[in-house]
Design a protein around this nucleic acid. Structure first.
Lengths: 213, 213
DNA sequence: TCGTGTGAAGAACTTCACAGCT
DNA sequence: AGCTGTGAAGTTCTTCACACGA
């Protein structure tokens, strides 16, 4: 068991291992080697072992990892065994899509509320029965529903004030889809997903690829 | 002008600089130093200068960077000056949301078509006038519309065959939202956005954060 | 022998620090 | 003086290589 700081990429890979283990267990596989797990995910075996070694000794030499035991171990590390209460601010296309996305609730992220400021959107009913609420009620609802995670899907120029509102209402972490740099307290849990940035990165790759030939 | 390989994070930051420059130019700012640009984005000034230095000398010593000139330079690098034709496969909530997302077309990514296999979805009309097409027609449409970028928003277990179809139809790059590792030719341009993975990474952060206090 | 766990080496990326242009 | 561009140093992350247990 290493005791250094955990690299951020390691965390994302753990979640990938977890997903792969779900499938392996479903298909009845009981043990797996770092080599085989790595092959399935395009990750080097040594990377798999190193990632796991940060958190303990999950494997048996000569044999590999027990899929069930490893999955439990990763679930423990990532906080997967519990339910997370999530709310979304911004009932545009993306916010609505996330609220209706079954993958999230299946993974333990329950969408408890969705907010907007536009009177056209407030009161709208989603496929899953949720109703868009007025952002004015945010703090009250957030506290009542014990929301852990806030998701920001508003336009860039409103993102900061939404983040401030979330932090002021006792939210524990934020996922930001708005293309804006948020100013938040150091070490406050934050993840960013910037879709247009990803498109830009792809077009750069394409351009490079072509100029190389 | 450095001549080494470009770090991947540099590319994403260039797109961030570009976005920031748009705003600066709008607000009438004509020059900016690496220091000030960095401050606005939580990036160290030296990082800004290093990123830009991979591609040439955009600045003037003692003065900084001309916003307009720098923006043009970055646009050139990232391939922003042109229109990219995009298609989406998977007309679920996320696929629909992307197709209707104005930020993409505003950035030069025109959604030319959206496909699905489900007869319930085929023929559906989107807000923007696009009609969901049968995936069977993919190759024909992709070639006719000269699609550059394919976006995958299907469930994980169908992602690979969609990717194969895209690559076989002359698509130049793929953005994959499905939680699956794609097997594609080495160096084929690919970007991945894995939303549930990001939630997992956030819950880990929250858990860590708490256990530290 | 097979496959883990892990120091040590290597690669990738970031930051420093300063020469040199304006 | 002010600020860039960039080698060199520093940091972070990945891969190697091998001792050791099953």
């Amino acid at each position: 068991m290493e005791n250094r700081k955990i690299p951020k990429p390691t965390i994302k890979r753990l979640a990938v291992y977890y997903r792969c283990l779900e499938n392996l267990i479903k298909s009845g596989k009981e043990t797996i080697s770092s080599q085989e797990l790595g092959n399935r995910l395009n990750i080097k075996a040594s990377q798999v072992r190193k990632d796991l070694s940060y958190f303990g000794e999950f494997g048996k030499r000569g044999i590999g990892y027990q899929t069930r035991r490893l999955q439990d171990g990763i679930a423990e590390i990532l906080g997967i065994k519990r339910i997370w209460n999530v709310c979304i601010v911004g009932a545009g296309n993306l916010g609505m899509a996330l609220a209706n996305y079954p993958g999230l609730s299946k993974s333990g992220y329950q969408i408890k509320a969705i907010f907007d400021v536009s009177s056209e959107k407030i009161g709208k009913k989603l496929q899953n029965g949720l109703v868009v609420e007025d952002l004015k009620n945010f703090e009250r609802v957030a506290r009542k529903e014990k929301i852990h995670i806030g998701v920001i899907t508003v336009p860039a120029n409103n993102a900061q004030q939404v983040a401030d509102l979330m932090i002021g209402s006792g939210i524990e972490g934020i996922i930001n889809f708005a293309p804006a740099k948020l100013n938040i307290p150091e070490n406050f849990p934050l993840e960013e997903i910037d879709i247009s940035l990803t498109f830009r990165a792809l077009s750069f790759q394409i351009t490079m690829q072509k100029s190389r030939q």
